[in-house]
């Protein structure tokens, strides 16, 4: 059968071709970047090459406390995100389980969700100041409301027959939540955690753009002031790589925690 460049529709490919294609997908932009920087004739202030950026990372590491910037940023992301998780998980669980709670809280959450988190920044500075709490608050506001709604949806997606089967086996309300709804929703919940972690990184930069004197986002802003384009590149790439690493970590946990979902035929 002729399948063309795209291959067959919705079919798995073997591991080797997968890895080759991943490499192609990642290396091509790198090559294009390198070629454009080398032969494009652009001023390195506008477009630094990969080598220059890499050297910049080394300088940053040795002389400019890269690890400090990195760790404070990771800490902020984790703090804001964890705070969201701690509140969003139980709240979403109740919204998804009880129609009455849903009626009270969901429209409100939906409304706040559409208010741009960035616009809250002046208020946050007014109310909380410019300390660490303020940065955590920006990340929290950016992720929390979306997370609540996604958790509620994950819980609602638990097939009703699974719940009803539990009821006809004599499960109490609490047992239904603990032994049916939660375990059934867990894989979807972990995916929600993974996705919201990505957004937390986005809001980290917002938080650090506003008021900070450390962190990757702050470093990017400072580099702009000194026209260190290579450092801007380095900062963006580092955030991307960190995000990717965390994402892969979540996927690994998913595979280890829910092996029955990942058996390939």
């Amino acid at each position: 059968m002729q399948t063309g460049l795209l291959g067959p529709l919705r079919q798995k490919i073997d591991r080797r071709s997968y890895l080759v294609l991943v490499a192609v997908g990642l290396l091509t932009p790198l090559l294009v970047w390198w070629a454009a920087a080398t032969w494009g004739g652009a001023d390195p202030v506008f477009l630094p090459g990969p080598r220059q950026v890499l050297q910049r990372v080394q300088v940053w590491y040795h002389d400019e406390n890269l690890l400090d910037d990195l760790s404070i940023s990771v800490l902020r992301v984790l703090a804001g995100w964890l705070l969201s998780v701690l509140i969003a998980l139980p709240l979403g669980l109740y919204i998804g389980t009880y129609a009455r709670v849903q009626a009270v809280l969901e429209p409100l959450t939906d409304l706040v969700r559409y208010m741009p988190a960035v616009a809250f920044v002046p208020l946050i500075m007014l109310w909380i100041g410019i300390d660490e709490q303020a940065k955590v608050a920006v990340i929290f506001i950016g992720t929390f409301f979306q997370m609540v709604l996604m958790v509620a949806e994950d819980v609602r997606r638990v097939p009703i027959t699974q719940v009803e089967a539990g009821q006809t086996m004599g499960a109490s309300r609490r047992e239904l939540i603990e032994k049916v709804i939660l375990p059934s929703a867990k894989p979807a919940l972990l995916d929600t955690l993974r996705l919201t972690m990505g957004w937390a990184w986005t809001y980290l930069v917002v938080a650090e753009l506003v008021a900070a004197n450390s962190g990757l986002g702050f470093a990017i802003i400072k580099a702009q002031r000194f026209l260190q384009t290579d450092k801007i590149f380095a900062g963006i790439l580092l955030i991307g790589l960190l995000g990717l690493a965390m994402d892969q970590g979540f996927r690994l946990i998913h595979r280890l925690a829910f092996p029955w979902l990942h058996r390939s035929a």
């Binding site: 009821q167 006809t168 086996m169 029955w260």
Partner: peptide, 17 residues
């Protein structure tokens, strides 16, 4: 519902985990 009345559904009622 009560445990003395067990029910078998058409499908999707088993616990996949």
């Amino acid at each position: 519902p009560g445990a003395e009345r067990a029910m078998v559904f058409q499908n999707y009622s088993l616990y996949p985990w």
